[in-house]
Computed example of a mutant assay.
Amino acid sequence: MKTGPGRFFEDYRLGEVIAHAVPRTVGAGERALYHALYPARGAVHSSDEFARSVGLAASPLDDLIAFHMVFGKTVPDISLNAVANLGYAEGRWLKPVWPGDTLRAVSEVIGLKETSSGATGLVWVRTRGLDQRGEVVVEYVRWVMVRKRRREVDVPVHVPELAPVVAPETLVVPEGLDFSRYDFALAGERHRWGDYRPGEIIDHVDAVTVEEAEHMLATRLWQNTSKVHFDVGQREDGRRLIYGGHVISLARALSFNGLANAQFIVALNGGAHANPCFAGDTVRAWTEVLDRAEVAAPGVGALRLRLVATRGEAGALRGADGKYLPEVLLDLDYWALVPT
């Protein structure tokens, strides 16, 4: 056979290292499409002049472009036969990605566990995105629920221990970044690091209704080939599942209203796609400030933020039973760099 059906749960081996195809050179075109698909307008990622004013050589590509590109490369090997992408942990952005960089991805299988249904299993992988120099630009752990080819399989069980939060002292600040002369007027808001308090809830006010064509265009842009995003025959309800990363970028872009100065995502502490998103859903976003930390760069501080994408109201996350409310789509815990 010349074609392949993708991997099933029993095809993974603990400790296996998978080099993913195909390397991709990224540029200004990806930036333009990203800003067309999402209402993204962070100043550092929009303007070379603004980026130079904060110590960078030019405007890097949006942090989530690197994430999506690397994620998409892993799909044929990790989640082509996935039922759902369940969560993230221990994510770090280690270097900015610039127009002209070439990205590739490598994953290591770090956990396996059969689910109680017997029809699927959980696969944990640690993925690293590398540039043309072999330097890691982004890394993260994710776990997916993958279909089994047959129920009767013997797979060793190993559930990895994952850190609940990326330690702030390990956050990597882009080389040369200096917010000491930060232009708040050009950035769009006056709020700085000291204006945010742990426990504060920010309703980002705006909303975006997800369209079928847009989410499929976005998923193709990232070269994500997961069947559930395109083929209506993959689900019993005949609906295309929205790629979770599409929801992440929508929520991140919506968070500009209230967090315009959160210029860089530098770590992903944890995340869950709480409920499926489908075309026609109207996505809103709210943020809870979880923590603050100092970093070793002029005028720069870090905020730990919980970003929630929802079809419901700001501040509503879980019910009395402790489970996510049905309207909650995404619960993402991350560190961002802001001016002090």
Results as ranks from 00 to 15, higher is better:
residue 75 V to A: 13
residue 12 Y to I: 05
residue 3 T to R: 15
residue 176 G to T: 05
residue 254 L to I: 12
residue 234 Q to I: 01
residue 270 G to R: 01
residue 253 A to V: 08
residue 237 D to Y: 12
residue 21 A to D: 06
residue 37 L to S: 07
residue 233 G to F: 15
residue 37 L to P: 07
residue 282 T to R: 10
residue 198 P to G: 03
residue 142 R to S: 11
residue 218 A to E: 11
residue 20 H to D: 10
residue 233 G to R: 15
residue 3 T to W: 14
residue 130 L to P: 02
residue 172 V to F: 12
residue 147 R to N: 11
residue 95 K to N: 13
residue 258 G to H: 11
residue 41 R to M: 13
residue 127 T to M: 04
residue 161 E to D: 09
residue 133 R to F: 14
residue 286 W to A: 02
residue 297 A to M: 03
residue 4 G to P: 06
residue 157 V to K: 14
residue 104 R to D: 04
residue 53 S to D: 11
residue 147 R to E: 07
residue 180 S to L: 02
residue 5 P to W: 12
residue 179 F to W: 13
residue 327 E to I: 02
residue 194 G to R: 14
residue 186 L to Y: 10
residue 326 P to L: 02
residue 267 A to Q: 02
residue 184 F to T: 08
residue 158 H to S: 14
residue 135 E to Y: 04
residue 247 V to C: 09
residue 164 P to D: 03
residue 307 L to E: 02
residue 232 V to H: 14
residue 78 I to Y: 04
residue 140 Y to R: 01
residue 186 L to M: 09
residue 215 H to L: 14
residue 97 V to L: 00
residue 320 A to N: 07
residue 93 W to L: 05
residue 309 A to E: 00
residue 131 D to W: 07
residue 165 V to L: 05
residue 241 L to F: 12
residue 165 V to T: 03
residue 262 A to C: 09
residue 93 W to K: 04
